[in-house]
Design a protein around this nucleic acid. Structure first.
Lengths: 249, 249
DNA sequence: CGCGGGGTATGACGTGGGTCATATCGGGTG
DNA sequence: CACCCGATATGACCCACGTCATACCCCGCG
């Protein structure tokens, strides 16, 4: 907490912080529909905070007393089990994290950690509820987000099903490509830093299996691991693998 | 649809139906908080309908234009995939089915089928939304239900993880026992008719594996399959198995 | 400089369970 | 009655993948 030692030129600092916050709030789609009055109200109670890669936002079981929104970076939701971790979701810029727990006033059911340097806006849940009361659009946004999550979870659940590891990882990268892929000269680029360990935790397998597959794909040119990103030269090839039968050509 | 051939004594029939509907509405916890005025309003637009075992309420992709609530029976949510089906959830008496899709006005993401003779209340989504608008408690109930679902899904997802089939099935019956178990002289009774096929679909394995395990458990006295029910003589034994290591004693 | 730790890579081995094949047991139907 | 179909049961086979072990690379640190 001792990260703000009283600065000698306090006003300047505060002004800079306020400006940064205002910019952040303006960038969040969730606050687009707000009246300027409401937005000012939010600005007074919201807090901007930076996190490093690997830092935890919270652990499973912590009380959910703040709504959290991502301004910059990526956050993963992790469930710890006796036999290893499971990554349930990855959230990106503009998305709310752990909104369900906040909304229902229950402890967080899973932990959340940053996958890269990340900036978050945090709003005390009391203010959040007040906002909800007054702004139906805002409520809609939350519900929509919640639904998206549920649908993603059910899809993931049905995809997890048995199936070979190769197919599960192929599907993983297909959905990643769809959600955050950029088209480049080399193919689809997925700007996401994922260790083999994390890939394993996302599809429910071991590091070794993930490594074996990824290095084989690297040799075959199906999926190339780069600096803080992945590249898929041919979506079609990946889809072939995800379908079940390998490409024989 | 031609299941109501115009009866000669129409009034009597209508009265009986109205009475049945009123009783049903009174039995649903979701309508407890309603004013009598609102409840009458609901009664005018709600429709009661009986379904047989195996009958589908809807298929994945159908438009969600009605809110559905269970008055009697059990409903399973199924996702069809190229390689077999997956049972995502089982809903019982008093619970809403497919509320997320209705709320968000999106097609049902999965199919729903009755596991036994079932009675449902159906409310046109327009009336449902009107009800939501006017009755915050009602909205709360839906959100709560939705959250419960999300939490259950994330739990299921993390439990699905790799793990041996025996452990997954043990966990399945533990949660079933918790959710709907009754204590009897023989042990915990789970009043649910589940075929081996359905058990397989719930934990993501094959019929054969489910059969093998279930018949072995029958021999060992861990879990006994009965007429439209299961009996767990010793929860502790099942928990031992779910923990990972077998009981050596 | 050497050392240690985390991520990546690769090989050997054993096995859980998916796949296929076959059999038995009702229950429904012509 | 014979016939068929769906659910339950059990055996044989074998392969994907989890487990264990080893090695390499890179980076920070004393």
């Amino acid at each position: 907490m001792a990260e703000h030692p009283d600065p000698p030129v306090k006003l300047d600092r505060a002004e800079v912080a306020a400006e940064r916050l205002a910019t952040a709030l303006r960038s969040l789609p969730m606050f687009r529909g707000l009246s300027t009055q409401d937005r000012e109200r939010v600005a007074r109670v919201a807090v901007l905070r930076d996190y490093e890669r690997g830092e935890y936002l919270w652990r499973a079981g912590d009380p959910a007393d703040h709504l959290t929104l991502i301004v910059r970076g990526q956050v993963k939701i992790v469930r710890h089990t006796e036999s290893g971790d499971v990554i349930l979701e990855i959230f990106g810029v503009g998305e709310p994290v752990g909104a369900i727990a906040v909304y229902n006033n229950i402890p967080y059911p899973a932990s959340a950690a940053c996958m890269e340097p990340t900036t978050l806006v945090r709003i005390p849940s009391a203010d959040y509820f007040e906002l909800l009361e007054r702004n139906p659009d805002f409520a809609r946004a939350i519900i929509r987000e919640l639904t998206r999550l549920t649908v993603a979870l059910t899809r993931k659940l049905s995809e997890m099903r048995g199936q070979r590891v190769e197919i599960r990882i192929a599907r993983l990268f297909l959905t990643l490509a769809e959600r955050m892929g950029r088209t480049t000269a080399e193919g689809i680029e997925i700007p996401l830093q994922l260790s083999r360990q994390e890939i394993a935790e996302m599809v429910g397998t071991t590091v070794e299996s993930a490594i074996r597959l990824m290095s084989r794909w690297g040799r075959e040119g199906v999926l190339i691991t780069g600096e803080k990103r992945f590249v898929v030269p041919s979506l079609a090839a990946l889809e072939q693998i995800a379908e079940g039968r390998d490409e024989e050509t």
